[in-house]
Write a protein that binds this DNA or RNA. Structure first.
Lengths: 248, 248
DNA sequence: GAGTGGTCTAGACCACTTA
DNA sequence: AAGTGGTCTAGACCACTCC
């Protein structure tokens, strides 16, 4: 049994899932049609059925397919709404995926104390972190103000290019961090005059605030973020499955 | 089109997941501690390791645990947040889980044409559906106005008790429908005077609008919903994991 | 009855953590 | 070295759909 043990991080099931996902995206498999059966996929990828099924599970969670017993795996029509924005996806990744004409102004990159509304219940207050403030514009209109606070272990410094580009690419590819999960909270709140003016809110002072805390695979928190969105440009799209676990 | 009215029989992995979830909720397994190892859980539940692992996968997706290679499955501290509201959870289910003092006024239950902003891109316009309008109050304050449109196949009628209580319980337990997934979209928009007055918005006319489309396991859509939330009472909490699949 | 997905098993080998 | 989780396998049996 010759097994490929090069630096490929991805598992067999991940490669299968990625391959099918791309075929769906490029419409080799089209919405309303069924994927090849699991046994056929076993032949196609030279793997066992459980491995194929784990790959299909990922596509199911993403909302790309729906499995129907006795029939097959139906490709869903995901084109109608924007792509699964849910999960953990950075602005820069979205920009590339959706081909938005977006720019980023880095307004600040300094060590600051973490604001209490962000630190609350997550990390010690009084703790300092690398504060990166970025204004996102689309078609030259300000739409999002991101306030990131990066905790020192594990992030000591961030190059200017990474701040202007994709922080996540820098963390994952250059620092080798394993970003694992995040908690997110969306509210609508009045904001300071400074923020209102940066977002060009006009007479109103209401913004959509997305506060999130992002963790590494070893459960170490490394990023606290507050994103302030213009209400009229804010849109959150989600795909969700009904859970089988209930809490009584 | 026969509708399966049998009770859903839970699989072994579901029972294991449910059992561990309850033990976490009741702090038999506490945040910061590790669950018994997978092999120990095999003994405990008399099952194979893959089955135990599928159960743990569910808990991982829910954000209840984080698996760390070489160490074990760490129980996460989810208490700080409201419970995972993400997924598909009805107001009534939340009410029970969180012990809110909530009431529901059914304002309307009639067959209506589906509004175009909801039907758009999902179902044919001009199609009629059972329209249920409900005002949700917490501590006697209006917080959410739900506009539900239930498609006729598969939902012909809804008893008053179900409308006032939990629609989902009626669909799943009485009609035997298998609710499977939903797409959701959150925006902030100006609303009509009627809605503004029902929500007691005062001088403002901005509400948070959550539009969703819910589907059955056979991909048949059955529910279109627009929920109008008072901005100052709106809070969306989410747990998300980094996806391994990328779209280039 | 043939083909599909749903579940479960027992075992194997690997990578990582800890002592 | 022992214990943990990560992955993959080959096979089994079941439930459902469609002809």
């Amino acid at each position: 049994m010759s097994i490929d043990k090069r630096k490929n991080i991805k598992s067999k099931q991940d490669n299968i899932a990625q391959d099918i996902a791309l075929k769906i995206q490029h419409e080799l498999y089209q919405p309303g049609n069924f994927l090849p059966s699991e046994y056929q996929l076993c032949d196609l990828y030279g793997s066992s059925r459980e491995t194929v099924r784990k790959a299909l599970k990922q596509l199911t969670e993403l909302g790309l397919i729906q499995k129907i017993r006795g029939k097959g795996s139906l490709v869903l029509d995901i084109q109608r709404f924007s792509f699964p924005i849910s999960g953990i996806t950075s602005f820069q990744e979205l920009n590339k995926t959706l081909n938005m004409n977006a720019t980023t102004d880095v307004l600040r990159k300094k060590r600051d104390v973490i604001p209490s509304d962000l630190a609350k219940g997550h990390v010690d207050s009084d703790r300092t972190a690398l504060h990166i403030e970025r204004l996102r514009k689309i078609e030259n209109l300000p739409v999002v103000l991101d306030e990131d606070y990066l905790l020192d272990p594990p992030i000591a410094e961030v190059p200017d290019e990474a701040a202007a580009g994709s922080l996540y690419a820098y963390f994952e590819n250059d620092l080798g961090l394993k970003i694992s999960y995040a908690t997110k909270e969306i509210t609508v709140e009045p904001v300071s005059k400074r923020i209102a003016s940066l977002l060009a809110l006009g007479d109103s002072n209401l913004a959509v605030v997305v506060r999130s805390m992002t963790y590494l695979a070893d459960t170490m928190p490394f990023q606290l973020t507050a994103s302030y969105h213009r209400p009229d440009r804010f849109k959150f799209v989600d795909f969700a499955r009904r859970r089988k676990i209930s809490f009584k």
